[in-house]
Simulated scan of single mutants.
Amino acid sequence: MKIISGKIAKAQKVVIYGPEGIGKSTLASQFPKPLFIDTEGSTNNMDLQRLETPSSLEMLLQQIEWVKQNKPCQTLVIDTADWTERLVIQYVCDRGNKDSITKFGYGEGYIQLEEKFGKLLNLLSDLIEIGINVVVTAHAKLTKFEQPDEMGAYDRYELKLGNKTTAKTASLLKEWADMVLFCNYKTLVVATDDKGTKFKGQGGKRVMYTTHHPAWDAKNRHNLPEELDMDYKEIAFIFENVPVQETSVEVPVANTPDTKPKEETKPVKEPEEEKPKQESLDFNTIPKDADETIVYPPEEEKSATPVAFQLPKSIPKNLRDLMEGGLVSEEEIQKVVAQRGYFPIDTPIQNYPEDFVNGVLVGAWKQVYKMIQDLRATYNTPFN
């Protein structure tokens, strides 16, 4: 056994929250080489690098996985946590064929939300292991708080993560983070009379708080002062010695669509063992999670694809985004759907019911895409 002493330079998990308009996104944009996943579309007027606004949780997970494989940045920014939570809630509702998370019995919807949100944080933690900082921004809200051992209640700022869900997703996010920074306006109060009985606000500045206070949640593991100016320079030293990873990664040959059929032809029993997994793709019995990682075609292969690969705008956007990521054609979706006996093969995707698109095709996209890959392997072509 080896004993390791001293500090270890490592990428950081940072949560920045505060009232709207305080400058959370601007502060996050000052981190080393940031790449934004703007879940609420609020950075359109900022000059920065971003991925497309995810239209579903599956698309968001694909974007994080792409960052993990390709390492295009030193900091990944999720802006914001509360809008990301909406994607998770939508995923849980679509998968359970419910129009609201409150429609699940005995709090089952909130349990699934907590599980899925936790797995999202685990995927973000994988980026920390390869040297990519993760910054999550969030809005703040004022709530009444009453301590069990004290009389009376008082106002305090908390993460704006749902109402009934706050005790689950907010606590998960705070525990996951290495730093929780609360940003707010600090108003300077001056006396207006000689006796000091009347006061007025005069000016102010933006600050960030780094430690816990009865009026807000905050923490850090770097012995920071309790209050700092809202400027990245105040915490820049924390990220100076983080090991920088290579900005590109070689995709294993075995994972590319062109060579996958060769792998599957060797073991004869392998396709037979996968059939039960495909049969489990059913609207009411969708597996809660699939651990397999979706491997999309490399970027150079996408750029070499003819411009003719254009999906109709009539296809729902959340499904169309996923199809574009894997270069999945409309005909491939129709074949898979007809293969499972849902609709005739000539039924246009835009005629599929909304709950079928959201609950089956988007909600179980990993299984759907796996079936499409198997279909491509059968015809021995990368794209059918």
Score class of each variant (00 low, 15 high):
residue 281 L to C: 02
residue 317 K to N: 13
residue 295 V to F: 08
residue 114 E to K: 15
residue 106 Y to W: 12
residue 219 K to I: 04
residue 346 D to F: 09
residue 87 L to Y: 04
residue 231 D to G: 08
residue 81 A to Q: 02
residue 148 P to Q: 10
residue 37 I to Y: 01
residue 382 P to Y: 06
residue 130 I to T: 07
residue 197 T to M: 15
residue 52 E to R: 12
residue 345 I to S: 12
residue 382 P to M: 07
residue 185 Y to D: 11
residue 52 E to S: 14
residue 328 V to N: 08
residue 209 Y to N: 03
residue 310 Q to T: 03
residue 13 K to V: 07
residue 374 D to P: 00
residue 212 H to D: 09
residue 142 L to R: 10
residue 175 E to N: 10
residue 107 G to I: 08
residue 266 K to P: 00
residue 225 P to F: 06
residue 138 A to G: 08
residue 261 P to A: 09
residue 137 T to K: 04
residue 267 P to F: 10
residue 70 N to T: 15
residue 344 P to L: 09
residue 302 K to P: 04
residue 82 D to N: 15
residue 262 K to I: 05
residue 343 F to M: 12
residue 78 I to K: 13
residue 319 L to R: 14
residue 364 A to V: 02
residue 13 K to N: 13
residue 260 K to L: 14
residue 214 P to K: 06
residue 198 K to A: 06
residue 33 K to Y: 00
residue 147 Q to M: 15
residue 6 G to D: 03
residue 282 D to R: 10
residue 305 T to K: 11
residue 83 W to D: 03
residue 179 M to W: 01
residue 123 L to I: 03
residue 209 Y to M: 07
residue 351 N to Y: 13
residue 89 I to S: 03
residue 227 E to C: 13
residue 363 G to V: 06
residue 209 Y to A: 02
residue 17 Y to L: 13
residue 32 P to W: 11
residue 113 L to Y: 07
residue 256 T to R: 13
residue 16 I to C: 07
residue 189 V to C: 10
residue 121 L to K: 09
residue 255 N to F: 09
residue 74 Q to F: 00
residue 195 K to D: 07
residue 276 P to F: 05
residue 173 L to W: 00
residue 159 L to H: 01
residue 318 N to D: 13
residue 350 Q to W: 09
residue 20 E to W: 08
residue 374 D to N: 14
residue 356 F to I: 04
residue 52 E to L: 12
residue 254 A to H: 05
residue 244 V to P: 00
residue 218 A to Y: 02
residue 67 V to T: 05
residue 218 A to I: 11
residue 382 P to G: 05
residue 42 S to F: 03
residue 285 T to E: 06
residue 99 D to T: 15
residue 211 T to S: 15
residue 311 L to I: 07
residue 243 P to M: 09
residue 384 N to C: 11
residue 277 K to G: 01
residue 117 F to I: 01
residue 247 T to C: 08
residue 348 P to D: 05
residue 193 D to G: 09
residue 142 L to A: 09
residue 154 Y to T: 10
residue 110 Y to M: 03
residue 32 P to A: 04
residue 290 A to L: 14
residue 104 F to E: 04
residue 59 M to Y: 09
residue 83 W to H: 12
residue 282 D to P: 00
residue 280 S to K: 15
residue 79 D to F: 02
residue 250 E to L: 14
residue 41 G to W: 03
residue 384 N to I: 15
residue 8 I to R: 09
residue 206 R to D: 01
residue 233 K to R: 13
residue 37 I to G: 04
residue 226 E to C: 06
residue 276 P to L: 03
residue 325 G to Y: 08
residue 85 E to W: 04
residue 360 V to T: 08
residue 355 D to A: 12
residue 23 G to K: 07
